Amino acid sequence: MNELIPHLTVFLLVLVRVSAFFVTVPFFSYRTIPPQVKITLALVLAWIMYYTIDVEPLVFNDEYILLVMKEALVGLLLGLMGYIIMSAIQIAGSFIDFQMGFAIANIIDPQTGAQSPLIGQFFNMLALLFLLAIDGHHMILNGIYYSYQFLPMDQFPSFASESLPKFIMTTFTAVFAIAFQMAAPVVATLFLVDLALGITAKTVPQLNIFVVGFPIKIGVSFLVMFTMMAVMIQVIQKLITIMIYGIRDLMAILGGG
């Protein structure tokens, strides 16, 4: 019976990191998932991970409070890194919606509860389904499991590393580059459509270009997105790969590697 009941101080530290990770990481932090399911999953996963961690029982003192805060911070940072990288989909959707004229038709994002672009939400659901299809949620769980190899429970993260600012800037650059790659085909095509509509408005002044141009831009946008869907899937796959490697690299940097 004693083997089934974990030591409370060690189990609590594992539970804090896993729970904080579920607060910000994509897919597991969605508000549409009931809180009871999240809590149950965090408890079961922390209980399983407890038996794989070789740590001596800790004493509840002032240093233990700092360890709890450290575990919460580590879990939040790892999940936030994944969320920042996946936010490139929302950025690409904002670019496309602005050109299509859908910027005024925002909808509620189930993950954050805030308004998000319509096309960005479509790409977000597509990325979520693709993440589940390639077992990406299992890779996310592997990330929090192997985080103890980079960041042991009794070790504080190294925020003074020189490579941390460089890694953050590189990640943000990659996020905007991928967002531009996803939005470039539609945005470039709509720019040419706007140019053609402008020439038509000057050539035929009697034509109400605002009434004609709006459905033309929507139809051309959907046609281009349907044609480039295979490329979009490849970019989403690249984005998920960058997210997994980004979480791993952040763990290595915080661990002093």
Rank of each mutant, 00 (worst) to 15 (best):
L67H: 02
L76Y: 11
L73Q: 10
F159C: 04
L132F: 04
M153L: 15
I104N: 05
D97R: 03
Y148S: 06
I89K: 01
S158D: 13
A88V: 14
F98L: 10
L126G: 01
I89C: 02
P157C: 14
F98S: 03
K70W: 02
F98Y: 07
V74P: 01
A160T: 15
L73R: 05
A114V: 14
A88Q: 02
L141S: 05
V74K: 00
N124R: 13
L132D: 01
G143K: 05
M139T: 13
N106T: 14
L132C: 02
Y145E: 07
M153I: 15
S94I: 13
A127V: 12
L141F: 08
A160E: 10
L118C: 04
K70C: 09
L78A: 05
I104L: 15
F98T: 12
Q149A: 13
L141Q: 06
Q115T: 14
F150L: 06
I96P: 00
N124A: 15
L131H: 00
Q90S: 11
I96Y: 01
Q90H: 06
G101R: 12
M100W: 03
M139C: 03
L118Y: 10
L67S: 02
Y148K: 05
Y83L: 11
M69Q: 14
G93Y: 03
L77S: 09
L151V: 11
A88S: 10
M139E: 11
D154A: 14
Q115L: 14
V74S: 01
I140A: 07
I84A: 08
F130A: 05
P110H: 02
G136C: 06
A160D: 12
I84H: 01
Q121E: 15
Q121A: 05
G136Q: 04
G75F: 10
I89Q: 01
L80Q: 08
L129E: 09
A127P: 01
A72E: 08
G75H: 07
T112D: 04
F95M: 08
L77C: 06
A105W: 08
I119P: 00
I144E: 02
E71R: 08
I134Y: 01
Y83T: 13
G113Y: 06
